[in-house]
Design a protein around this nucleic acid. Structure first.
Length: 269
DNA sequence: CATTGTCCCTGGAAGC
DNA sequence: TGCTTCCAGGGACAAT
């Protein structure tokens, strides 16, 4: 499940392969990720374009093109981008070909991922909240977001239009690290708790990036390897296992239809 | 605007 | 063994 650390890892690995390269041809095996665009129209917008750079915004990968438009990729739940995989990959939805037979393969088991174009990157960035790794994401900025909302704090962390990039796993990990109950109403957090949460969000994300992301299910980076971040998870996807801080069995509840893991001893309302 | 719920999708695990 | 049922969850969208 690619969240910010996974998408950041993918983007970083693709930069040296893709920067300056030109799309020679593409093959589309499934048009669902293209939305309203036909394969022909998609191809027309991409083939011949040179890649001027890659960036990440929230969980989106932006591939900037010489013509001024941007190819926008969202991997959702099970999408992967693989660089020159040796074997024929199952669930391949699209292939992008470059010079010297280099190729970028988009696979996606559940077909939630999307490939689209924007003329201005603001079309994407304007509807996303602050990036939690941006220096402007301060405890004060977090406090402002939480103070007006009575939803569970975890639900607020998952709202991409407020903070862009945190998903289900890292929300659980950040709340555990800051010892805050995921269902606690956002506006009831104390200044101290907000400070802890802010610190925990950045720590958890930075640590996961250093570990090349978490591979709870299907995630692989472009080199085909799994990440290691999940090996250090304290609560996420660890229902029934002991809390590493106190030994209590990790609980699972549902918040906003999302499985939520926490330690009932360390994380109080 | 804030909040909540539904839907999309398919492999794998669990249950019988 | 083989069938059925349920679960995973990001984000668009609708409803309140």
């Amino acid at each position: 499940m690619p969240e910010l650390p996974e998408v950041e890892t993918i983007k970083n690995q693709l930069i040296p392969h893709l920067t300056g390269r030109t799309f020679k041809s593409i093959k589309i095996y499934d048009t669902r990720p293209l939305g309203n665009l036909s394969e022909k129209e998609f191809s027309r917008r991409l083939v011949g374009q040179k890649i001027t750079g890659l960036s990440r915004r929230g969980k989106y990968i932006l591939i900037h093109l010489s013509g001024g438009s941007t190819l926008v990729i969202h991997l959702r739940m099970t999408g992967s981008l693989l660089w020159n995989p040796v074997d024929t990959e199952p669930f391949t939805r699209a292939e992008f070909f470059f010079e010297n037979k280099d190729r970028l393969v988009f696979t996606d088991i559940r077909r939630f991922g999307t490939l689209s174009f924007v003329k201005e990157t603001s079309d994407i960035t304007n509807r996303l909240g602050i990036d939690p790794l941006n220096p402007k994401f301060t405890p004060q900025a977090l406090q402002k977001l939480l103070s007006t909302r009575k939803s569970p704090v975890k639900a607020v962390l998952l709202q991409q239009e407020l903070i862009a990039g945190i998903g289900n796993m890292y929300a659980d990990e950040a709340l555990f690290a800051s010892r805050i109950h995921p269902a606690k109403p956002a506006q009831t957090l104390s200044a101290c708790e907000i400070k802890r949460l802010h610190r925990a969000i950045q720590d958890v994300l930075h640590k996961a990036i250093r570990n090349k992301g978490a591979s709870v299910r299907n995630y692989r980076s472009p080199d085909g390897r799994a990440g290691r971040a999940h090996e250090e998870f304290c609560v996420a996807h660890r229902g029934g296992k002991p809390c590493p801080r106190c030994g209590t069995s990790v609980s699972r509840i549902v918040i906003r239809q999302r499985g939520t893991y926490y330690c009932p001893t360390c994380q109080n309302i």
